[in-house]
Design a protein around this nucleic acid. Structure first.
Lengths: 212, 212
DNA sequence: GTTAAAATCACATCATCATGTGATATAATA
DNA sequence: TATTATATCACATGATGATGTGATTTTAAC
């Protein structure tokens, strides 16, 4: 197993040292850099090419959200794990929407932190369940509620789905084992129910309203 | 401290029994009901009024997603924790969007499961970090990782936008003060760049990739 | 200063979609 | 039982989209 290369951004020198010691002393983890702010983040990440960045939010000169955005823009394959004292929606939202892979609190015990780093490396998104609940609340409300309104039939939904995926009438007919005329007739009803007048509009509406 | 009242929906009788035994044998947890499917979920939840519902997804007659939706519609204060074998986006998306408070896998060890129930009761949203990552991908991608690759020109983006809104070639031509042939020519290039072969696919891709 | 990309227009042809007007069978519902 | 909704199929016609080939002009890049 190869080691996980880690870079730390943290302005508090005590905490930075503490984390450094923790990572240096643990098998499988390799600290390749530790900086007090994100002033030169692009150059630093570009040179060190870590697997994971532990990123504080509140830092002087260039803060962690700014750093995160730069990293995700220039090196999107680098996973950034926010490690902060803030637990408010604003900061969480900013971080998550900017591409942070996880969001841990500084008071997380060392063992859990190492676990989170492993998690993030392996394709997880480590976060506390409190933060997870807040993330859920960021989901666009229309996506969380069920809008029956259209009440398409199962068959209609199925056909709409195939339409969205780019199938022609003929292909839909084949896949559904019905005639093209029947497909037409279903699509006509779909248009009526969605109040649209073309395939394109139907597809756009279907995607936007999360019908499919 | 008052006990947490729990109802289980699970069609596999062995697992249902196992969970029942686990909950009955643990202080602070109270199993108030266990059913093999969601056929009478409304009446059952209405009568038992649990704090937490452990909900399997794949059940005969009435499945867990249907049950979840009914519960959240009639008794939104009841927290539903999905407990399933499915780890695909489809099911997770469905569950989260329908108001599930958490999403755990059946292979979760008992101790972790009890912890998750506690978590959910206390305002958390327990889920594995793998699932959390998938939930993150459902978030509005406005500032998330955008794949460049397409590099449509301004004009092409403009026309793609009009397409997505349901405009015909003719309407686009009028709005852009160009000929239909020019519209055609732009759309052709758009198809090439997006690697699609029809309007429908282009629109679907445009929306999904947040190009528009 | 040549090259390349972007934006514009033209014509022709074929495939596909949209619309209208039917019809039949089945299942659920009132 | 009568009604409604769903799903199925058919035919015809006009509109729209897709594809191919080719051309001009302007702007940006090398």
């Amino acid at each position: 197993m190869t080691t996980i290369r880690i870079v730390i951004y943290e302005d508090n020198s005590d905490l930075r040292e503490g984390l450094s010691v923790l990572l240096r002393g643990t098998n499988g983890f390799e600290l390749v850099g530790a900086f007090p702010n994100c002033e030169n983040v692009q150059a630093e990440i570009g040179e060190l090419m870590p697997d994971i960045v532990l990123m504080d939010i509140d830092m002087p000169i260039a803060n962690g959200i700014q750093g995160l955005k730069i990293i995700k823009e220039k090196y999107p394959q680098v996973n950034v794990l926010m490690l902060t004292v803030f637990e408010d929606n604003e900061h969480i939202f900013d971080a998550i929407c900017s591409g942070a892979v996880g969001y841990m609190l500084k008071r997380t015990p060392p063992a859990k932190l190492l676990e989170a780093i492993l998690d993030a490396t392996n394709g997880g998104a480590p976060m506390t369940s409190t933060i997870a609940r807040k993330v859920l609340q960021m989901l666009p409300p229309q996506k969380r509620v069920i809008e029956p309104s259209h009440n398409l039939t199962d068959r209609e939904r199925e056909i709409l789905n195939l339409l969205v995926k780019g199938n022609s009438y003929k292909m839909i007919a084949d896949q559904c084992f019905i005639s093209m005329d029947t497909v037409r007739s279903h699509i006509k009803k779909i248009y009526e129910k969605l109040h649209v007048h073309s395939q394109t509009e139907a597809v756009a509406k279907a995607i936007h309203n999360q019908i499919v």
